[in-house]
């Protein structure tokens, strides 16, 4: 099971130059020099894998090659090393070479979902979105339970503004991991973009319901919404505002979701405003803006700030 998880992580890998990888690379190089990985057993090999990824992040091909060499000498037939080699090829060679590498791997073992996802990632980076979607859908048709794959597919669809398809992909993630409020939030946000406001409102409220009462003794009314809950309340506010401003949205839901009654919407709007004010007062600490639009702007800034921090 552990190998499956590791393969999933590799399959989802995306290069980014972060400080973390920089630090990992610096620390790792001493490990590599002293052959310290040999003394740490299985953990040592994992360190090498991480180091290779960090080196690729930082564009340090030499270190990555060294790690790969050691790993492939030690585990000559491991699909995990193959996947890592593929990522290494992606960095320096043309996408065509990487694709043919994955193709050759898939010929040997057509059942390895990680290779499929890497292939889709390469297509996506090339801008061949249609091919990426095709690869991902064939993979998901076989390996239905890959939540990450569904999320990626939904992401591809939303970047192409195919919100209906994105919603359909997200609905599978909801089925597979109904306990994860992040998926609900994504679904709500996509529904909002798809102009299915009643559905979005319901989903946002669902996120609120899932996230607001943690283990604290504070009753939800006195708590300060943060993180996911704050984002959900923000979404609720946007939805209620749009529903009040454009009543025709109430009945034009693509998913035939019944919108709440008008009184419920107005009290939800009140409640959301109150919640957002609490959040703004406690988190940003500045003067609470008076009008709705000023409040929304402030909260958007707040969410953006916490989003970039995490």
């Amino acid at each position: 099971m552990e190998v499956t998880a590791a393969l999933q992580k590799l399959a989802a890998y995306e290069p980014r130059e972060s400080q973390r990888s920089q630090r990992l690379l610096e620390e790792g190089q001493t490990v590599l020099k002293n052959n310290a990985y040999l003394k740490r057993g299985d953990e040592g090999w994992e360190t090498l894998e991480k180091l290779a990824l960090a080196a690729l992040d930082q564009g340090d091909i030499e270190v990555a090659n060294k790690c790969l060499k050691i790993l492939s000498d030690r585990f000559p037939e491991s699909s995990r090393v193959d996947c890592l080699t593929g990522i290494r090829i992606e960095v320096t060679e043309t996408p065509e070479i990487a694709l043919s590498f994955y193709d050759s791997l898939l010929e040997g073992d057509a059942t390895n979902a990680a290779f499929w996802r890497r292939k889709a990632a390469v297509y996506r980076k090339q801008g061949k979105t249609d091919l990426a979607v095709k690869e991902l859908s064939t993979m998901l048709d076989t390996y239905y339970t890959e939540v990450e794959g569904w999320l990626e597919l939904a992401d591809i669809y939303s970047t192409c503004q195919q919100y209906t398809y994105a919603l359909q992909s997200l609905s599978h993630t909801l089925l597979l991991a109904p306990q994860n409020p992040v998926h609900f939030l994504l679904f709500a946000e996509t529904a909002y973009l798809a102009a299915d406001v009643p559905l979005a409102l319901k989903m946002y409220l669902q996120v609120v319901d899932m996230t607001d009462d943690d283990d604290d003794d504070v009753p939800p009314i006195d708590s300060i919404p943060t993180g996911l809950t704050l984002r959900a309340w923000y979404g609720v506010k946007l939805c209620t505002q749009r529903l009040t401003a454009e009543p025709r949205l109430l009945t034009s839901s693509a998913s035939q979701t019944a919108a709440p009654a008008a009184t419920a919407i107005s009290s939800l709007d009140d409640l959301a405003t109150e919640r957002l004010r609490t959040a703004d007062l406690n988190l940003a600490g500045d003067l609470v803006p008076k009008g709705d639009s000023a409040l929304i702007g402030a909260i958007a800034k707040l969410i953006g700030k916490s989003g970039s921090k995490s």
Binding site: L205, Q206, D270, L271
Partner: peptide, 14 residues
């Protein structure tokens, strides 16, 4: 999420 709005309103005393 069928009746989530009533649930939320009740939870927050509205």
């Amino acid at each position: 999420a069928d009746d989530v709005e009533t649930r939320i309103l009740k939870k927050y005393g509205r």
